[in-house]
Amino acid sequence: MRYMTAETAEAASTALAAEPGLARVLAGGTDLLVQLKAGMIQPDLVVDIKKIPGIREITPEAGGWRIGAAVANAELKEHAQVKADWPGVVEGANLIGSTQVQGRCTMAGNLCNGSPAADAVPGLVAADASVTIVGPSGTRVAKVADIPAGPGRTTLAKGEIVTAIHLPARAPRSADAYLRFIPRTEMDIAVASAAVSLTLSEDGTVTHARVALGAVAPKVVLADASTIIGTKLDDAALAALAKAAESVCNPIDDKRGTIEFRTSTAGVLARRAALIAYNRAKGVK
């Protein structure tokens, strides 16, 4: 295995594209080093992207935010304004691993790892966030939702790296929330998860909503948010949302949960996350 630190995104991309063997990007390394330890992969090249200018920075952008791909989630959590705009995105990112893991792990890494249970991804999808991708054929922008391709797989081409995540501007009376189910209180992989982002009218009616579910399908899935649009999240709307969430679940039975459990829990979490987001949007603590 060779190790290189890239000075620019283009240099990283060139090196990754040119490597005939297995190449991997190193940002926080909290998945990469686990895979190395387990002998799951034996890369020929690892490219550390943390020295690329701006890749560890959070900057305001078009009313929203640009989060550099190597920003550690602990740093994200300490950014009060991002947290105020996108509390659900930040809480999802901050559920990955321990305090120690938070000191290293990144949202971009979580996305590119391709896990269906990634905690940062449902919040980004609910936020309709985008990513900038630098690759051999130039720079492109894609929706976060279009990156995962299935367990452990992404739509990124060889040599392509994510350099930044873009969170859009927030309309007034908007908020998001993320909930996941784990058996313990910390340190587990999500058994099911739900992120809800919504915007309210002045009278408290939901005018816009996106609901994304994690760990219940090969990749993050959207539930039908029209179940709550036009409502004030009355019980019937919440029940409809839960049902809509359950209906898009296509989970597996494994050591972490059963199909039935994941499905019913996804519905519960979608409902609860919607309520939290709703109250946040209304300014209720």
Partner: peptide, 10 residues
């Protein structure tokens, strides 16, 4: 990760 012994916050 999956043999889940109690953590402090549990």
């Amino acid at each position: 990760l999956d043999y889940r012994i109690p953590v402090a916050s549990d």
